[in-house]
Nucleic acid binder design. Sequence first.
RNA 1: GCGGGUGUAGCUUAGUGGUAAAGCUCCAGCCUUCCAAGCUGGCUAUGUGGGUUCGAUUCCCAUCACCCGCUCCA
Length: 532
Amino acid sequence: MTADAPMKDMKEIVALCKRRGFIFPASDIYGGINGFWDYGPLGVELKNNLRDLWWKWMVTCPPIGPDGQPVEIVGVDSAIIQNPKAWEASGHVGGFSDPMVDCRETKLRYRADHLIAYLPSTFDPKDDSNLIPVFMQGTPDDEIEKKFKKIGFHFAISQCETVPFVELEKYGYVEDYGLLLLRKDSSAKHKILKERTVGPDTKTVGTLTEPKQFNLMFHTFIGATGGDENKAYLRPETAQGIFLNFKNVLDSTRVRVPFGIAQIGKAFRTEVNPRNFIFRSREFEQMEMEWFCHPDEAKLWRDFWFAERQKFWRAIGLRSDNLRMRDHDQDELSHYAKAGLGTADIEYRFPFTAPDFGELEGIAHRCDFDLTQHQKHSGVKLEYMDPVTQEKFMPHVIEPAAGLTRGVLAMITEAYTPDPSRPSGVYLDLHPALAPKKAAILPLTAKDQHPVIATKLYMELRGEFAVDLDIKQNIGKRYARQDEIGTPYCFTIDDQTVADQTVTVRERNTMKQERIAIANVAEYLRKNIRAV
RNA sequence: GCGGGUGUAGCUUAGUGGUAAAGCUCCAGCCUUCCAAGCUGGCUAUGUGGGUUCGAUUCCCAUCACCCGCUCCA
């Protein structure tokens, strides 16, 4: 969005989505449900169009690689529920959710692993006057000293041991040594320690809550009886279904490294706070491709997919400077990407993130983390034997992982174009390949030969294109309706059509009209909506 | 998860402790030769659940959803 372009109002976009049948609140008649959305008749067309274009770019007609050779990518469609061991191996069961600590007084929330407790060497849990100040990691020493004085904590920093807040409970007081030592069982005392803490932003003792664990994954139960032994998870990403099938794909097809496996499907995450329409929802759809390559070629392929994926988003309509690439900082890298070449996001400036950007797609170097983990946990050998060099190695993975549902939102917001000069006040400038309806057939009036000819044309086109026939009401209303849903072309039948077999074509963005032979309408559409 | 705000028809708004009003949209019909025109008619609403009351859309409580800010976002 340039500075002088009209602001795109998220409220209006959400309203249009509902009014015209793109996106509805899930369970709308029951008052909705936080974090879930339904796609209506036009929304599902738009989403499917975007999905199919991605699949075409990645699987059906993949690009030429950096070495001039066509790249090879195959698809899978794995189950949403897998053996729970798969999620233990991938690390999703263990430690992805960061425990959080709340301050009851200030209502502030902290990441538990960022909190540091200061324990004086002479700390005596039996003495009520002994406090444990807690600070955020990286708090400057002078601030800490100042706070010490304020709360009557009579020690210097140098006299204290710093202990991660989350490990506080592991510390107990051992009289024999007069020191704080790590003990396995200190259940009798850890509660006392917690009650002595003073949070970073308060002077009151004991306002910090226990660390709360947030589970990333949805739980479910297999079978009718439930019970912990039947516990399973809904996948939080489609990627693992690909890794689980790595060996099956190698054994059943003739692909060789380097190659890719792609998958599109639903994923589920228990977002703490769903927000911003469909941007952060608990059920969403991903388009992921895992590219398996030799470790030495990881850099080459990462750069290739960085460029390739940007091309995609630009080609289907995100042409503005609302799209950008951004390398992750070291501290925001995920566990698997830390050792590798890092992660870069393709980001879009959504109205609700502006002037910031929100992630649309992440391109990560996952190294050999996933295959190694699954090999370890499953006991199945997943190394690759290069048939030419006879070299045995664990392939590295470059992963372009895009949000399909976020893509839909980006498409809608990018296309949403307020235009006070036209009756609808707005139109959707969707790429014709993405538009839910490619054209509308409109008899100028509902009498004489107009509807007859229009119906005939509609019957011819509907076998090949998603087209609408709209006869009722005046022509301006019908143009306006099509503008709002982003239909790129309207063919109008009038008296001249009866005389010379021509129709007018109205182009959505310019509202300009030209006259073409009715016999050429199909070819006209074919040419103009050609997929990117 | 915290704090603040908002909930009356598809949308925008009105109103009231006693039958809930209008414009636009939508639908049907008439009219209409190119951009939501006109005429006639029609559908549709007090987010949900409690409480107070003879009676609650209105007052109270809870809850849900959405918006803003914080927090979070492997």
